[in-house]
Design a protein around this nucleic acid. Sequence first.
DNA 1: TCAGCCCTAATACTTTCGTATAGTCCCGTG
DNA 2: CACGGGACTATACGAAAGTATTAGGGCTGA
Lengths: 209, 209
Amino acid sequence: MKKKIQVLIVDDHYLLRIGLANSLNVESDIACVAEARTGAEAIELYRKHMPDIVLMDLRLPDMNGIDATVKLRSEFPNAAVIILSTFDGEEDIFRSLQAGARSYVPKDISRDELLKIIRHAHDGKHTLPALIAGRLAQRMQRRELTEREHEVLRLVVEGQTNKQIAASLQIAEVTVKLHVSSILTKLGARDRTQASTMAIQRGIVHLMN
Amino acid sequence: MKKKIQVLIVDDHYLLRIGLANSLNVESDIACVAEARTGAEAIELYRKHMPDIVLMDLRLPDMNGIDATVKLRSEFPNAAVIILSTFDGEEDIFRSLQAGARSYVPKDISRDELLKIIRHAHDGKHTLPALIAGRLAQRMQRRELTEREHEVLRLVVEGQTNKQIAASLQIAEVTVKLHVSSILTKLGARDRTQASTMAIQRGIVHLMN
DNA sequence: TCAGCCCTAATACTTTCGTATAGTCCCGTG
DNA sequence: CACGGGACTATACGAAAGTATTAGGGCTGA
């Protein structure tokens, strides 16, 4: 008998971990070997079990699923990570794949598609659900925001005025205006309010509770 | 032997349905009797099975979980609905309970707490997780937006200017400004951009894909 | 019936936003 | 070394946004 595909599940949602573990263990060629709740725990358990596949939630208590992927792959460059997410913002997809993930799947995925993607990922292939691939294509068209523009955008989303942003970043208000203008053109937004919702929608900025 | 608490699960996420069904069926006094993927299906299956408890996702393909609850309870006023949600915006909590839900639980809830809430709901009690209760308390303090203000806010979040909103709603721009001002004071926002993100954060407005 | 709230509107004024143009400094790539 | 790009600053202007005040009409509940 062939060795099963060993999977590490990383998710802080209890219900989802059960659902995943059950779905996988039913299959004859796949087995869930460990479950982690945090990014740190994920790396620890990866060292211990050396699984073939990591199913990683995008939102984790301690760190971002993307950062966790980067950290994991810096230690284990061959780690096959599949990002699981409720969000389907283009930016999250883009960054996940940049971080070296083999795939990116929304949590409302069907059982069959998930299994297919796990098997493909195990074979070294990069498979994306059609919807996700479409989002990614959209994202590729756009020019990326610079680091500074990201900072400014974050503050814009928080509702700060240009003057407040200038104070926060220790730069002149005119400079802030310049950055905002640049952000607007890059995002294709008419004003800061639209830029703000677009940023949230696309996953460029995440609202935390 | 006592009759088990019969539960209807309403969620379009395959993984979560499995997780839930498994968690519940392990218990000796609880049984999942049916699973629905949409609001319409939920009502249909409720008629058929007459379950004791409905676990309803807030986000459904066809309609809102809150609307589904209202519809269900207009036909079956004694239906015990527990809303399940990834969001923990105050507004969603508030509206869910207004719609007659027995409880509102986030999807990252622990197994024990979920079971406790199901049993309490079955006894007719209204139990809320501490975090959720806190959010609700915040919400209760605030004055509610009027219907018109909601409409305006939705358009503000879309990034429309006052002039565009005036055109959309067939009213004068000055009137729009008045509504916006009123919204700002009620939300405690400085400007429309902040109001916009607050509205998203609190679940007053939902972004759709 | 009257008070109170909501929606509507007009006028007037201040502040902020967004764009345009022009120029300096620094850094990494070719 | 030159070139391009990013970050920064300055000045100036028109377009929105936001505030304040006043006021009429409609609906509701005491």
